[in-house]
Structures are given as structure tokens and as C-alpha cells.
Design a protein around this nucleic acid. Structure first.
Lengths: 122, 122
DNA sequence: TATAATAATGATAATTGTTATTAGTTTGGT
DNA sequence: ACCAAACTAATAACAATTATCATTATTATA
């Protein structure tokens, strides 16, 4: 994989970002400091980094794919009101390995939904 | 919810179908015996039945939403080659309840990916 | 250092999956 | 039978993503 300034900026932006942004959110945040950047480039590079396991792609939480620089084992909770995404620390890998034997599981994800504490009293 | 012939047919088709079809697959299977049916009607009714908990909507496995008439606890494994979807029996509910305390989890899903036995030698 | 090969880019068109709209039809309670 | 509500088919609209393409940047090699 060749170096590109754009990819470096995209990755840095993601690392600085705890909100598990969508490609478009990364794009919009990058635009002010690098106005020439293209949305397609952001999509391309986030997906490429995810293939590399440099970052993680979160699919199925809501309509858009989201990205996470944190590749350690953890899962995500999305608030159905405010759509904020939170990290959930949970050990599932061994549980899945021990209990799913009849399939050759290469990857899996756990997606949690509900109402977050910020929203519960609104 | 008022009765409609179309919804009955859609539900019957899903019940007869172990492959966790997408809305479009249900539509295509229904078309020959009910040519007037519309794709939008299939979407509408599958979503409505899922809201009722009559069926279950599986999101995040691949690009399309899939539907499952089986509402008992189980999860899904998708083959990354043939895109077939398999049932995975697993008890996770109590594990999640016991281990995720800081979020008010209303629903969750576990999505598994890999290569199925049919495809592993191809 | 010049050059060639390759992989990246920005801009935008195209595609895909899904939902909304609309005008008209079916249903069930009175 | 009448009426309002819920339904329908068809299709337009929409949002998210990917593909295309001409150009530019990066890397390897002569």
C-alpha cells in the first residue's frame, strides 16, 4: 500500500475521534483543514484500513457504516434516541469459540441497542 | 392491523423459507403466484411484521436486511463466499444481562461471518 | 536523477437498498 | 350499504456507497 497524505489525515482524524464516526462525518471534519479532500477518498481509505485491520468497521448499528480506531475487543451500544454510539467492554471471543463449533467463524460482532442515560429522562 | 391477502402470502412465504430471505427475494418468490404484488408492499409488510415481533429482522449481516420467521433465540452465520445464512443456536441473553450493566439494553444481535462447509473446499 | 510502473486522487455518475408519495381499492364496524 | 381507516401498486425520491475516469503522487529501478 502506497503512502498518501489523505490516508494519514483520515486515520489521524479517526484516532482523535471517540464517536465512531461515519465516513461522511470524517469527511466533514477533514474538509476545513484539507478542502480538496473527496468523500470517495474517505470511503476508499476507511475501507482499506479496515481490510488491514488497522481500524474496525462497524456495520448494522444504523443506516451508515461507522469506523473505530480501537481494535481491541469491545462492542457497541447505540442509543435509539440520540444515535450516539458507546463502547461496551465485554469478553465474548472465548464464549463464542467454546459454544459455536459447527461453523468456521472468521469474525463476528455484537450490536446492542437501547436508550442511553443521557436520553432516558427526556 | 387490518387483514390483507398480500401480508398473509408474504408471511406464509417467509415461514416456508429457511434461507432468511431479503425483501427482494420474498418479492421474487411471490411474483409468479401473485403477479400484482409490489416490492414496496413486501418491504412494508415485512417491516410491519417485524415491529409486531411476528417475525425477526436481521440487519448488518450483509448489505440487505433479511427476515426470519423463527423468533426464538438464535443467531446467524453468513458465509462470505455464497452468502447463505445459517442458524446458530446459542444462549446469550443471560450472558449479556449479567455482563452489561451500565447500559439499558433493549435489544441486541450477534452476527457471525466465515466460510461455510459447502464452500470451504472450493 | 530521470523514468517507468503502480497506486493514489478528485469529481462525479451510477448503483443499490429502502422509504415516501399518490391515487385508488379493500376491509370491518356501524 | 356506508364510511373511515388501513390497505394496495407503481413509481419517485432518497441516502449511502461504489464505480469510472482522467489526472497526479509515490515508489522502484535503471
Amino acid at each position: 500500500m502506497k503512502y498518501s497524505k489523505q490516508r494519514e489525515l483520515i486515520y489521524k482524524k479517526l484516532k482523535a475521534n471517540p464517536i465512531h464516526p461515519t465516513a461522511e462525518e470524517v469527511y466533514l471534519q477533514l474538509k476545513p483543514e484539507y478542502p480538496a479532500i473527496s468523500l470517495a477518498t474517505v470511503y476508499r481509505n476507511l475501507n482499506k484500513l479496515a481490510q488491514n485491520n488497522t481500524i474496525k468497521k462497524i456495520q448494522g448499528l444504523d443506516a451508515s457504516d461507522r469506523f473505530d480506531h480501537n481494535t481491541h475487543e469491545h462492542y457497541h451500544f447505540i442509543c435509539e434516541k440520540c444515535h450516539r454510539v458507546y463502547d461496551v467492554d465485554l469478553e465474548l471471543l472465548s464464549y463464542i469459540n467454546d459454544n459455536v463449533s459447527n461453523y468456521n467463524v472468521k469474525s463476528f460482532d455484537l450490536l446492542l441497542k437501547g436508550i442511553c442515560n443521557n436520553c432516558k429522562d427526556l
